[in-house]
Design a protein around this nucleic acid. Structure first.
Lengths: 221, 221
DNA sequence: CCCGTTGTTAATCCGCTGTTAATCCTTCGG
DNA sequence: CCGAAGGATTAACAGCGGATTAACAACGGG
């Protein structure tokens, strides 16, 4: 999962990046509204953390422009504690959730998980498909009840596939959502991680749709 | 374990800080309600000792705001002896225990231990995992019945890990809960203490989850 | 002033990552 | 029906960065 962080204050931005990367997300950052709008319109972000108090182009305006252009990714806005009107305006502008500053990092992570979960149509924090269970809170995976140890990138790949269970996910889509900055795609990195996941989970969990990509779970009609 | 002490009277505040640090806790202090609310909302405190009689923003209001915002850490309130109604209001506002002033420091420590223990879901004051036994009353540690001498920080690290047995604890989480004021994280202090603990307890007590952190005890499913 | 504790630096080790390349398999044209 | 082309699988390996470890400097209490 790939998250865009929009925050002008460098210190908090770095904290957010560190915490999100630690939690297993690919992170892009923007320091002002222009940059934010560009990245959000160009790159395949799964969610956005958006501070409203930005220099130049305001956070609310960025959000409105995205929504007007048809970008529907979940957006969590950060507001000053006492500025309750910002929350209202934010929600009206199309934000999916808000968090008042100052906040505790765990809470932001929890809310972000909830947004990503809902965006994928899942009800529970634990995704279960084909005997594989993935706990989005602890990043733990088990197969038929047996815990499986995954590396960071293996987890990201599996997590993305499970959040889109039943859908065919192409190599390029996986790369876009798993790495922050664009990547050399002249290599078969994705195939290798699929291989490593299959070695740990068995060959019949991840299906190949030749010419299109990979899929986990029964194809949705 | 990291404790926030909220007390306006400087003399008692220093006494509390000294006693708690002596007992092996990392201590933050706040002299008024505003400060208290900010620290409690921002920092990763494991428990709070809260005097209700504060200037400006009242202790009860601080507590209510925390609870309204979803902060669930254990709170022990300090009340004047005769003001029994304060106790009732405090418990209703979400306090977990109370203590009437003046009080014996040992009693505060005992009640605090009980709160921290319950917060972690443990029944006994003695934590036992993987042959290691840690007595939270005396801060003594033994391995397979043999007493082990630990330094202050070694004890804090081990204590935090054992209070969260089965969970993977990241380096940053450990730093947050072991030191009061924020710390340079450009150094590998945590790794060094893990090393020193392993030297005393054996290499198979604390497990490494590469890329995520450390864990003591079997992973919880 | 001495000694144990604490925190830093730096060398080393080792698992993860991404690349290359060989091989397998499917498809499709002849 | 065969063979070539290209996509998918798999193994092997080198570089990187996180984790370990030792050694030392800084600090503070007795």
């Amino acid at each position: 999962m790939r998250i865009l962080v929009v925050e002008d204050e460098a210190r908090l931005r770095d904290q957010l990046r560190a915490a999100l990367e630690q939690a297993g997300y690919a992170v892009d950052t923007a320091a002002d509204g222009e940059q934010a709008h560009f990245i959000g319109s160009t790159e395949a972000c799964d969610a956005v953390v958006l501070d409203l108090g930005l220099p130049q182009l305001d956070g609310l305006s960025v959000l409105r422009r995205w929504r007007a252009d048809g970008f529907a990714m979940p957006v969590l806005i950060l507001t000053a504690r006492d500025a309750w009107h910002e929350k209202v305006e934010g929600m009206d502008a199309g934000a999916d959730d808000y968090l008042a500053k100052p906040f505790r990092m765990e809470e932001l992570l929890a809310r972000l998980r909830a947004l990503l979960r809902r965006a994928g149509g899942a009800a529970s924090a634990v995704l279960e498909i084909a005997g594989v269970s993935l706990d989005t809170r602890t990043a733990r995976v088990s197969l038929d009840g047996v815990p499986i140890k995954l590396t960071g990138h293996e987890y990201r790949v599996l997590s993305y596939l499970m959040h889109h269970a039943g859908a065919v996910v192409s190599r390029s889509e996986l790369i876009e959502h798993i790495y922050a900055q664009d990547y050399d795609r002249d290599s078969n990195t994705v195939e290798v991680f699929i291989r490593r996941l299959r070695a740990k989970l068995g060959d019949n969990v991840i299906a190949t749709e030749r010419g299109f990509g990979y899929r986990i779970g029964e194809p949705c009609a």
